Computed example of a mutant assay.
Amino acid sequence: MTLDHVPGAAKLSFDVVSAGIAVGTLAQLLPHIAALLTIVWTLIRIFETDTVQSVLRRRRRDLE
């Protein structure tokens, strides 16, 4: 099945509507993804702090 019988303007209209739906869908997902990535990044930064690293080193020494 081909779309040769559908006028070009109709194809373009459906393409624009389809793109709008895709952008709208992404707009609803992106805040959640951004929040998750922010949390992960913050946890990584906290893990890298001198305080956390010294606690982890101390625990390793105690376990040995």
Rank of each mutant, 00 (worst) to 15 (best):
T49N: 01
R45V: 07
R61C: 04
I44N: 01
P31Y: 00
G20D: 06
R59L: 08
V16C: 03
L26A: 13
F14Q: 02
I39R: 13
T25W: 08
Q53Y: 06
P31A: 00
G20M: 02
L30G: 05
D62K: 15
R61Q: 11
S13Y: 09
L36K: 15
L37D: 03
T49H: 01
T42H: 11
L36S: 10
E48G: 02
R58A: 12
D62E: 14
R61F: 00
F47V: 11
G20A: 00
L29M: 15
Q28N: 11
I44T: 03
L63S: 10
E64T: 08
I21W: 05
R45G: 03
A19Q: 12
V23D: 04
L26N: 04
I46G: 02
E64L: 07
A10T: 13
E48T: 07
L63D: 10
A35F: 11
P7K: 09
V55M: 14
L43P: 03
I46S: 00
L29P: 06
I44H: 04
L63C: 02
G20E: 00
L43Y: 05
V40K: 05
S18D: 09
A9V: 14
H32M: 15
T38A: 12
I44W: 03
I44D: 04
V6P: 00
W41L: 12
V6I: 14
V52G: 02
I33F: 06
